[in-house]
Nucleic acid binder design. Structure first.
Lengths: 232, 232
DNA sequence: ATCGTCAGATTGTCGGACAATCAGTCAACG
DNA sequence: CGTTGACTGATTGTCCGACAATCTGACGAT
């Protein structure tokens, strides 16, 4: 069903794109990076003026960037008290994991009816994760790949909005993970578990894969909670 | 598990609250209202200065409010071209309905394991919807109650984040519905269908309810699409 | 028909300003 | 001794004015 080209030829410039990076975006990106890499501890207040002249931008610009972080759940704003890095409490962890479980498990259940493209995305995400594990990559690399794999499960829905939601959930989770970065989680012996999951999927046993994933998420939740809230 | 009160008595002020309404919030709320009530057609550009001195506030305040609307999917921002009311295209409708289906159906499937509180919320939502139908309430009233009912399905997850997500999805949908408000959808002969669904749930046949809901959403999608994109 | 160029409008960003609110201190008071 | 009230400094919420960069549309030149 080709769209009727308005006379003349179709333009051959379909493959071009240009990323418009506004100052606000760059500020927000820098703040995200600082949070995810643990430079900014949870609960740290993000002072507008301090950030502004630290980055050489106007306060209004910083304000707008902070609004973005708040919308993404990376930071929280208290009226007249400013915004600070979100400090994950136990309920938040539970809720995020539960929400993720809904999105990811439902995605996995769609495995059979998903597009081959989406399925292939899962496979490559797993490959890259496994490669990072084998190469004993940095903790942050592992995290990144691991979460990307989970995101690819949601991608099986082929719904941009569901993926966007999963992304903000994962962003919130990354704030928590950044806190236990130093504690050096023992995690990431999980590569095998994920491989098993994919085998189940390719073998057609979707239900087993779904329950597997659910168990994995439940495990992850208690692991994170213990690392965070059983502090010395 | 009562929290250990730090000596002395527990404060008897638990039931107090105070809603801090910033100017930004009020501006955003006014804009939402205008969009949902059809005063602002889809695609209408939201000029910062015009809104600013129309409401008697500063431009920066309006900018921040617009940022909120964009984050909620009610409006879209194009770089250097400002923000305008989101104009739903067919893909967006499909995607929103698909995402809703995932959240709502998964919620309904949790009926048995949900808290009695959440289940009761569904029942009262249905009652209020039915009452509105019986009273031949205004089109907007019906819409409001109908969507509240669907939101209560998501509430069965008892996950604040999933509910928040469903709310933004519904907000996006309301923009579309505002467009066909004038066209006076025939809809809302659906009260019976929902009552049937609840009977299935209370009877324990969760699966039947889930497939019912799925069918209902699919119907709604084509209805909306036809009303929107088969213009005279 | 395509390409410069120009004027007008609008956004993106800046800088400064001020009242309102908040956290902390500390003295006064019952 | 615990509560209250007043003071100070810091920070946010909001406003105002300004300017460069960018988009839109028209107009004329090639």
């Amino acid at each position: 069903m080709a769209a009727p080209e308005s006379a003349s030829v179709a333009t051959p410039y379909g493959g071009l794109s240009l990323t418009h990076s506004s100052t606000v975006d760059r500020v927000a990106e820098e703040l995200r990076r600082a949070v995810f890499e643990g430079e900014l501890e949870a609960g740290t207040p993000l002072r507008e003026v301090a950030i502004a002249d630290s980055l050489g931008v106007a306060r209004s610009t910083v304000r707008e960037a902070l609004g973005l972080l708040v919308a993404e759940g990376i930071a929280v704003r208290e009226p007249n008290r400013g915004v600070s890095v979100a400090s994950p409490d136990p309920e938040a962890i539970t809720d995020v994991v539960r929400a993720r479980a809904v999105l990811e498990v439902a995605g996995v259940r769609r495995w059979a009816s998903a597009s081959e493209e989406a399925r292939e995305a899962v496979r490559t995400a797993l490959r890259e994760y496994a490669a990072a594990v084998a190469a004993e990559a940095s903790y942050q690399q592992l995290n990144e790949r691991h979460l990307a794999l989970h995101l690819s499960f949601v991608g099986l829905h082929e719904s941009p909005r569901l993926v966007a939601m999963a992304e903000t959930l994962i962003a919130e989770l990354k704030v928590a993970l950044a806190q236990i970065d130093r504690i050096r989680r023992n995690a990431h012996d999980q590569a095998g578990s994920h491989t098993h999951l994919l085998e189940l999927l390719d073998g057609g046993d979707v239900e087993a894969a779904a329950t597997d994933l659910e168990a994995h998420l439940a495990d992850a939740e208690v692991a994170i909670r213990e690392a965070l809230f059983r502090a010395p």
